[in-house]
Design a protein around this nucleic acid. Structure first.
Lengths: 216, 216
DNA sequence: GTCTATATCCAGATAGAC
DNA sequence: GTCTATCTGGATATAGAC
């Protein structure tokens, strides 16, 4: 009984690592050919296997996209929830924004898969989508630390941040034209929310470089 | 000589209207199948012609995308430059934002073609792209009327507006969750720019509902 | 599980008669 | 200019031997 269980476990691990290798190859193809340019032929060639073998691990092309989505979403959530050095809530918010930009601009294809709906028949499965929720939660925490809890303000934040990323990728790929607006955008946003909102950011012991609490 | 010129003109008009009909059909297919789902077979079927006939009018599939882009860009510029009823510069800015949102959300495929780069080998030709410049100019005019000329502020404006549209289309298609943030976003943006900038909006004789000029 | 071979289909694009 | 017929190539996916 024990031996059988161990063998099964081992097999399952082997299977998982084979799947991972295929997803690796898929990303390599996508980086070269674009997200829509993924073909199972190329994928198999890059992975060093034959096309039918791909079907031993994934039931369809969309299942591969789904696995790619799942990996990207996990990377995203992991990156966004890593500890932040800063203490001042505004600084933390800026740092999160910077991580978001860095994450998106370093891999536009990944950004396209995660945040835009451009593959015709593809919808991520709930399991693959789950980590994205974790990332959004962490954003809300950073906002809450700045006294921002109004859902409309949260929506405004997502609009501002994705707007900056979107313009950067679409109109100045590889550059910093919109990326350099981060601090400015955060100040604009915070002034808006904190001017119209009761709850203030918690005072901290850290250096608040400019955005000191404005009220008692 | 006159007869020949007239005949040539007539033929050229016929040719143009045939091209237009094909572009019509292309948009119909795209609305049904998605931007990437356009095939020349479907296109020909919808247009009521045969596939080779398409090649009598367009040299390739990308040439069709280009014509679609050109039409969309013209529609965009035309819409954005139509006269504005409001007089108060802030109201005009809001109205322009609303038009932009309306234009994008009523036809996400058109938005995708115009503002995102998602078709693998396709780049719009300079001629097709030209009207887009006209539209951007008109945006800058509406900003200038609010005293905003700093290029960084213009970039901030494009980030905010496209961010709202992007979130609306991606995360609440058909709804108004981000669309309803328009006034709020404009106030946030104007407060930011006008607080940090010397030039004020020109005073007008119209009802400035809330955003009266703040300085002498 | 992995392969070779192949089925099936559809894409963009062309030849050549009318 | 328009058609029928076809080329060429690539796609996803499957059959069946090993």
């Amino acid at each position: 009984m024990y031996k059988a269980a161990a063998a099964s476990e081992w097999r399952s691990a082997r299977r998982q690592s084979a799947r991972d290798a295929i997803v690796d190859a898929a990303w390599r193809v996508v980086h070269a050919e674009g997200l829509a340019g993924l073909s199972l032929r190329d994928l198999a060639k890059v992975a060093g296997i034959s096309t039918p073998t791909v079907y031993a691990y994934f039931e369809s092309k969309n299942a591969i996209y789904d696995a790619m989505f799942g990996r990207a979403a996990t990377e995203f959530a992991d990156r966004m929830t890593e500890p932040y050095e800063a203490v001042d809530p505004r600084e933390v918010l800026i740092a999160g924004f910077r991580r978001f930009i860095e994450f998106c601009t370093t891999d536009p294809a990944r950004y396209q898969l995660l945040f835009q709906r451009t593959i015709p028949g593809f919808e991520p499965s709930p399991e693959s989508f789950a980590p994205a929720v974790r990332a959004l939660d962490s954003s809300c925490q950073r906002l809450a630390a700045n006294g921002i809890r109004d859902p409309r303000h949260v929506d405004m934040w997502t609009a501002v941040t994705t707007g900056v990323v979107d313009q950067q990728i679409s109109n100045d790929p590889g550059g910093r034209r919109w990326t350099d607006l981060v601090e400015s955008a955060v100040d604009m946003f915070l002034a808006h929310c904190q001017g119209a909102n009761r709850p203030r950011p918690r005072a901290t012991t850290a250096k608040g470089r400019r955005r000191a609490p404005t009220n008692p």
